[in-house]
Every structure is written in structure tokens, then in C-alpha cells.
């Protein structure tokens, strides 16, 4: 799968070619440095490409990681992600340039994405803290607001039967920590690619807060 590591910048709205006003997300995607190429023939046993994105402070990076980055002639990087079965032949190469890349080369946004592509974006959703079942699982709450009822409006209701089975089944949906999960949004459309600033403009919303790291897959 081809893709890039990027950063969610924020949202805005633009007019598409038909004049329709569409909400879209701005992603700073790449350039990513190839830090490792794994192949089926080597001891790794599978084909993958390891990409790194974002600068980190050298003092906050372990010596082991620094050694790994120095093999790619790159400085300290903040995030590293592996893409399985990365297909170089699908890269969009500039005139007269080879699409084959090796460790230390960079991949920029215009080499992978073009206008109109359908992509998926993986990110970590915004954390909501400890939430009840209405917000967390979409329950409707119990009972009426009036007719003598009180404090049941956002309650979960029954969580099981009585002396048989005499327990609450595992996986019963209850209140708890909400958000902060790995979420993948599929079928997002690329509205435009700004190669000079490494910006990807995507129709619709993507998971996470502003500045969070996202994986953009094609």
C-alpha cells in the first residue's frame, strides 16, 4: 500500500470546479524520508517501506534511533511508519526521473497523490474523556422527561437478566473512556495537491486534533 505520513493542519472550505462549496481538511503530507526498505528475500521476510516524518530534537531521540536515522543520512525524526507492499511503479515521476528509490531518498506528496484520487486517512480521534452510554454508544436513554420520572434520561437501562445468567456479559456496552482511538476514514477525495508546500487538500473531515500525525493511504 502506498502512502505518506503527514500532519493535520486544520479545516477550511473551498469552491470545487462546479462551484459547490465543500468543507475540506488541509494536511501537510511529507516529504517523507525512506529510513528502511524491507524485502521478502532478506531476514525481514516481507516487503515494506519505512518512512519517517517531522523533525525531532536530537537530545530527545535515543542513540539506537539516531543510528537508524543516520543510515538514511537523515536527522532525528519524530514519527516512523511502515507501509506494507509499497509499490514504486505507482509513483508519479517527473519527466526523465526514475521512480525507483532507496534508503535516504525522500518521497513528496505530488509523487503519490493527484487530484481526484480516493484515499484513506488513519489518525487518532480526539479524546472525549469518561463519557456515558448516550454519547459513547449512541443509546437513546431511558423513559420520559416527565410523568414523574427523574434521573433516567441518559441512563443505560438494563444490563442483563437476573439470577440466570447471574452475571453481566463481557463486552456489554457501558460508560467509559471515549475517543482517542485509532480511526480510519475511507473514500476521501483529494481536491488538490500543492506540491510546492507539500499540502494535500482533502474533502471532508479526518480524525484527530490539529497538529496530530496522520497516515494518508492511497
Amino acid at each position: 500500500m502506498n502512502g505518506l505520513l503527514g500532519k493535520k493542519i486544520g479545516m477550511t472550505s473551498v469552491y470545487d470546479n462546479t462551484g459547490k462549496y465543500v468543507a475540506c481538511t488541509v494536511i501537510e503530507a511529507g516529504p517523507n524520508v525512506i529510513t528502511q526498505v524491507k524485502t521478502r528475500e532478506s531476514k525481514d521476510g516481507y516487503d515494506a517501506l519505512q518512512l519517517a516524518f517531522g523533525d525531532a530534537k536530537e537530545k530527545n531521540t535515543s542513540k539506537a534511533m539516531m543510528g537508524h536515522f543516520s543510515k538514511a543520512n537523515a536527522g532525528a525524526k519524530a514519527d516512523v511508519v511502515e507501509f506494507r507492499n509499497f509499490d514504486f511503479s505507482q509513483l508519479i515521476a517527473a519527466e526523465g526521473e526514475s521512480v525507483e528509490k532507496s534508503v535516504g531518498d525522500t518521497i513528496s506528496v505530488d509523487e503519490i497523490f493527484k487530484e481526484g484520487d480516493t484515499i484513506s486517512v488513519v489518525g487518532t480521534s480526539k479524546g472525549k474523556g469518561f463519557q456515558g452510554v448516550v454519547k459513547r454508544h449512541g443509546f437513546a436513554g431511558v423513559g420520559d422527561a416527565t410523568h414523574g420520572q427523574h434521573n433516567r434520561q441518559r441512563a443505560p437501562g438494563s444490563i442483563g437478566a437476573a439470577s440466570y445468567p447471574a452475571k453481566v456479559f463481557k463486552g456489554m456496552r457501558m460508560a467509559g473512556r471515549t475517543g482517542g482511538d485509532r480511526v480510519k476514514i475511507k473514500n476521501l477525495k483529494v481536491i488538490k495537491v500543492f506540491s510546492e508546500k507539500n499540502i494535500l487538500l482533502v474533502k471532508g473531515a479526518i480524525p484527530g486534533h490539529k497538529g496530530s500525525i496522520v497516515i494518508v493511504e492511497k
Binding site: I9, G10, M11, T12, V14, Y15, V26, E28, K192, F194, K197, I199, L201
Partner: peptide, 13 residues
């Protein structure tokens, strides 16, 4: 924020 402004400048006449 600058990236958003840049996109708006490019996309909106």
C-alpha cells in the same frame, strides 16, 4: 494556520 491561508489564497478568487 499559514498553510490554511495559503490554500485559501490559491483556491478562492
Amino acid at each position: 494556520m499559514d498553510a490554511i491561508k495559503y490554500v485559501q489564497e490559491q483556491m478562492i478568487t
